[in-house]
Nucleic acid binder design. Structure first.
Lengths: 193, 193
DNA sequence: GCTGACTCTTGATGCAGGATAAGAAAATTA
DNA sequence: TAATTTTCTTATCCTGCATCAAGAGTCAGC
């Protein structure tokens, strides 16, 4: 019963076993195939999803029609368009699975209801967003002021499993460079060693 | 009594007058001179500050010793290092006033205490962080995929008062370019018109 | 196991914005 | 008001990454 997601919540703030049980009972378990679209531009994001198993990307389409990947999410991460979900307004983003994926999702009404019943869960989620914010902030300044090569090395350190799971062009998109540039960066890094 | 900050909170979730009064009573009012350091790298961030009047920047020092500005904050904004404040761990950032500034601040203990007394305030702050997160996310993808010129135009739209209040080199730093480039961009934009 | 579709590499060329430098203009301070 | 500092502009040259193009490797479906 007390699964990874419970540990994930408890890492934010202590929550009793009964409360966790209520929380768990409101989650919807989903198994979806690779390349499933969980959210499309123009739709309102109806879920916050915790990834039990698998891999997901969040991206938007830029003015040239190219994907720009904002986030990868793997096991023990949450994925959602927070802006669209929490204001229940149309999203600019796409969320799509990269592997067969198992998810636990909450919808907007359940989440609101849960927070009213169990204020400690609201605390846990507040703390989770704060942490996500500070991670995004760090990533933001890494992107602004580091070279493509050092961003790639940072990426490898932080997400060691992803290069085996995700096509390289998508990693390039995440890093904000072209696949060609990433390829060259890799050969340069090999030469240095 | 019911000031801008109360309206700011109420825009997130309804909070009763008495609750707002308690909230207000826990805030500390500060008036500080231009060029005051509110937070230095290595210190734990002891405050979340709401700006009543004035202007503040948040930045870090990169490997070359240059300032990289992550955020400006003016009237009716909050400023803090959320990561450092909420985990009470040392910050990598500096926060410094750009004008004589009036602030309302909460410290960590007061905020925790407030949330336990008034769960609705925890809700309000959760919603505030969510909004901040989604703003940062938009800014992040604007930075990754737009040219320096369009980022500057975006900046002008969003923060029309800042060019009059803040030296241009600092705006350049915020945009992730050199002051020279911003100067060139401005002359090019004039030519086009 | 062949075929077509992705995916990765490598090369040639171009361009946005960086680095450096030096002078003009504006803001502070005396 | 003059002196000093800070900020902004302009010019030249340079670099990191993009773009375009072509070939090689890898994977998926028939």
């Amino acid at each position: 019963m007390f699964s990874e997601i419970d540990r994930h919540i408890s890492r934010c703030t202590p929550v009793s076993d009964e409360e966790l049980q209520i929380f768990n009972s409101r989650l919807k378990h989903m198994s979806v195939k690779k390349k499933t679209m969980l959210l499309r531009q123009g739709e309102v994001c109806r879920f916050e999803a915790y990834i039990v198993k698998g891999c997901v990307k969040k991206y938007y389409i830029d003015q040239n029609g190219d994907q720009v990947i904002l986030q990868f999410a793997v096991e023990d991460w949450w994925i959602s368009d927070i802006g669209s979900f929490s204001e229940q307004r149309p999203s600019n983003l796409f969320i799509e699975t990269l592997e067969d994926t198992e998810l636990l999702t909450v919808d907007f009404e359940s989440k609101e209801k849960l927070f009213r019943e169990i204020p400690k869960l609201e605390r846990a989620f507040r703390i989770m967003v704060q942490r996500a914010y500070s991670v995004l902030e760090s990533r933001f300044y890494a992107t602004v002021s580091h070279s493509a090569e050092s961003r790639y090395q940072e990426f490898l350190k932080r997400y060691p499993s992803l290069p085996q799971r995700v096509p390289q062009q998508q990693i390039a998109s995440y890093l904000g460079i072209t696949p060609e540039s990433l390829s060259r960066i890799k050969t340069q890094m090999l030469k240095k060693k």
